[in-house]
């Protein structure tokens, strides 16, 4: 278990860094896909099996394919734009990330899971679709409906942004 934790943590960090630092956008996208796959296995080990499979099928599968397609179609593989508009931002961002990481690690290390969280973990029965479905469609029906509306709104907003006919666009 300890070996898995260490390995998964190292892989998550590595793929995360790679997807930020790789110069070629296709390579970065592939690193992100690898990150999603590792994340999916972590979910499964944490007894969230349905979520783990969704993570792999939807994120590492569907979304990443779309991503790579868009990068190819737009000839956007080269991430270098020629200049860095905010050169001092890189070290500052690293410093903020390090401080945030330490604060989170400290807070999580000192925390004990409250009873309510433990109770709901038991209710999920290993996080299969069988256990998750009723929870999602009964208790959390309202946010699920709202997310449906959100996807529709996002589509309308995206289509509004590419409205043709202006300035030869």
């Amino acid at each position: 278990m300890i070996v898995f934790n260490l390995l998964a943590g190292a892989l998550l960090l590595l793929t995360g860094f790679l997807s930020v630092y790789l110069r070629n956008a296709v390579h970065a996208a592939l690193a992100l896909a690898a990150n999603f796959v590792v994340m999916g296995t972590v979910y499964m080990v944490l007894q969230a099996r349905f979520l783990g499979w969704v993570q792999i099928i939807v994120y590492a599968g569907a979304i990443m394919v779309l991503f790579v397609f868009v990068i190819m179609l737009l000839h956007a593989a080269q991430a270098e734009v020629g200049f860095d508009p905010l050169p001092w931002m890189r070290p500052a961002a690293l410093a903020v990330a390090a401080v945030g990481f330490l604060a989170l690690a400290w807070a999580l290390g000192a925390a004990r899971a409250p009873l309510a969280a433990k109770a709901s973990a038991a209710l999920l029965k290993g996080g299969t679709a069988l256990a998750l479905g009723p929870e999602l469609w009964n208790t959390w029906r309202y946010p699920v409906l709202l997310v449906a509306a959100l996807l529709l709104v996002a589509t309308v907003a995206a289509v509004a942004l590419i409205r043709p006919g202006k300035e030869g666009a």
Binding site: L150, V153, A154, A157, A160, L161, R163
Partner: peptide, 14 residues
């Protein structure tokens, strides 16, 4: 839901 339409609205003058 509030923000997504606003991002598009802010850019709508093209």
């Amino acid at each position: 839901l509030l923000s997504l339409p606003l991002y598009a609205l802010a850019a709508l003058r093209y």
